[in-house]
Design a protein around this nucleic acid. Structure first.
Lengths: 174, 174
DNA sequence: CCTAATTACTTCACCAGTGAATTATTCTTT
DNA sequence: AAAGAATAATTCACTGGTGAAGTAATTAGG
């Protein structure tokens, strides 16, 4: 069970009731928020399932992918933490884990001995190259219901949304 | 810092490189996945910030809202766990927390003494009624960049996506 | 240059969430 | 009615993640 559509059905029902009780609720926006977080969460769960057999959490994989996709295959924990929306504390743990698996190396930067350089190893690259392709079919299938045009529209909307999020958080924190 | 748009900029750059290395990657789909999870994550973080002053985590609030929006203001932990994509273990902890705050009560069901009935208290309803409205302006602002028509389109797309997710997971597990 | 402030990472103590085993109750089958 | 299977919740041991304090290295000011 636990189907996303079932959860959404319950959500629609509950929101109709809440709308009656709570005056001024922007119901369309709340619904979009819930749809967004539910679908995203379900897809992240899919990824987590794929990673579990390899004893790897999503954040570990995320960090590894950033090294994989960086020009020189290396970065410092603080760089990754900033981009990965994660604390430096957790990056330490992630680095420990990846080093133990032999997927990255860790060394002090020569120019600034405070900085650590995490670098993906050949084994790390092999791991990514082996892990990714099997995920593609299901990912493609998930978006197969959209035409190329619709995908473009969705992508544009999500980029717009990202900009709005930044605007709102920047404006509200002053 | 830590702006979503900055992270997306780095993502676009990294994906261009990965596309060269990993053959057959459905780049559009991967990008949509990342945009979806990034925006959803940022918005969830916003909610978490609003809840933190009240010593409440997102899942606690989620559970409370489901009771709030249920017809009779009550449900069993297993009901909520199923809908909230959470383990029953965690529902026990959430129930403990909400009971301690006086926002819900917990009692055995009379017809089936295995079941627990969680029921939102008047204080719980007051809490929700007080907590929600201040969140509305920022939420509305986040979606203000979209016209009514665009919101409808986005909602439709996310519902389609939810259906696809269910189809893919159901088909792949057989 | 020598102190103070900053930066990068780590350690520590804690919160949030999970899977496996446990307990109590109900359902099923004979 | 009794034995066994199933279900609901909880406890336990563990992973994943955070904030605050600590350590080491660098930068800035006098």
């Amino acid at each position: 069970m636990n189907k996303v559509t079932d959860i959404i059905a319950g959500l629609d029902e509950g929101m109709a009731r809440v709308e009656q009780i709570v005056p001024g609720m922007p119901i369309d926006d709340v619904r979009l928020y819930k749809l967004l977080t539910l679908t995203a969460g379900a897809m992240q769960g899919e990824l987590a399932q794929n990673l579990k057999p390899h004893g790897m959490a999503e954040s570990d994989f995320h960090a590894l992918m950033m090294l994989f996709s960086s020009p020189n295959g290396s970065a410092s924990p603080s760089d990754l933490a900033c981009v990965a929306t994660q604390s430096s504390t957790n990056m330490t743990r992630i680095a420990n884990s990846l080093v133990k698996k032999g997927l990255i190396t860790r060394a002090h930067a020569v120019d600034d001995r405070r900085r650590i350089i995490m670098r993906i190893t050949p084994a790390g690259r092999r791991f990514v190259n082996k892990l990714l392709p099997p995920m593609f079919p299901r990912l493609s299938a998930t978006f197969a219901a959209f035409s190329a045009k619709e995908k473009t529209t969705l992508q544009r909307m999500l980029r717009t949304l990202a900009q709005s999020i930044d605007d709102v958080t920047a404006g509200g924190d002053e």
